[in-house]
Design a protein around this nucleic acid. Sequence first.
DNA 1: GAAAAGAACGAACGGTCGTGCTATTCATGA
DNA 2: TCATGAATAGCACGACCGTTCGTTCTTTTC
Lengths: 200, 200
Amino acid sequence: MAAQTATSKGAATRELILDRAYAIACREGLEGLSIGDLAQAVGMSKSGVFAHFGSREDLQLAVLDAGGRRFGESVLIPALRAPRGLARLRAIVGGWYDWVRDNRQGCLIMGAVSEYDSRPGVLHDAVVTLIKRWRDDTARAVVMAVEAGELRADTDAKQLSFEIFGFALALHQDTRLFDPKQARAQAERAFDRLLSANSP
Amino acid sequence: MAAQTATSKGAATRELILDRAYAIACREGLEGLSIGDLAQAVGMSKSGVFAHFGSREDLQLAVLDAGGRRFGESVLIPALRAPRGLARLRAIVGGWYDWVRDNRQGCLIMGAVSEYDSRPGVLHDAVVTLIKRWRDDTARAVVMAVEAGELRADTDAKQLSFEIFGFALALHQDTRLFDPKQARAQAERAFDRLLSANSP
DNA sequence: GAAAAGAACGAACGGTCGTGCTATTCATGA
DNA sequence: TCATGAATAGCACGACCGTTCGTTCTTTTC
């Protein structure tokens, strides 16, 4: 009944399926991801795909997890190469803004947030965990900038993270609804103003 | 084939349907709104409900329109009773924050944004129009506050609106994923800091 | 090379979906 | 009061949904 994939081939196929599923779910959302479409996208039968996950919900969880991993590898990991402090915080936000630019056809995570933000279940919990971790990562970068003396000592890291998230959300929305270039410029400026308002 | 409702009873029924449809779509999204569920909610047959709109897409458009009207009547109209300037801007943002608090089980408009932000079609266009109007309304209130001398003369109204939207989006997200009280406090503080940063 | 395990297929199930078509009920204006 | 047309119901359709099952082919293990 459960997904097994003990074989190396099985694991490879599973990765392929997840890859295609991620692409579909970016556009259609995790709720819009159907096993039939997915099977067609990977050139397999419905039941063949299904057997790798055991249920649609487990598939959605796996795709969400894959999405979180991609985001981390694309935004957080590169930013960790920047030195602690303001440089790293700027790298995080800049990487995030780039991510929004490069995923204009849809962001799996943001989609999942609005799909499951008020619908109880394992997917809601997974989304909460994912966003909370990202928020904490951001707040930690703020704290480091404070400790480095690059932000005012009385800076409220959680408050700053809240506002940074707000700008990223507005960027996300404006990029899709209005002009991406202008949205990016406004988000950059908002973040700069935020930093200078908290500069020591 | 189009929806007609020439009779007064027909119009009344249509309003009832839209009322229930709005409630459902708040929770499930416009994509999650099915005619079968809706018919059951109003105690009618599927075809009876269907005849009022002619197509599912027209139903969704009508529900979105009703949602926009509700938001306007609940947030914008009351705020217009406040005197032009900072008072009105505060009323707009406060009303918006209250709206987020009072629609915790789901906001139709925010849901529609993420459902149709990158899917071309009439619903995408309707969402863009809706959000653009609301953004313009907000920017206009900012301009009035500038003209009243309550904000710095060099204030960029569009930039300020972008940031205000960001805070509202972050509030929306945090209200559902984390602690509503704390989210509200952070959004209030973010807005206050924004105003004082632009105070003359 | 035999035996066990895994991977994938194809068909089918019970549901639900949106949408037509055809009656039938009902409200309304003359 | 009656004729007219709107409002609603009923039924059927084709398509798709997630899921289950039995079977077959392939990979791994001994």
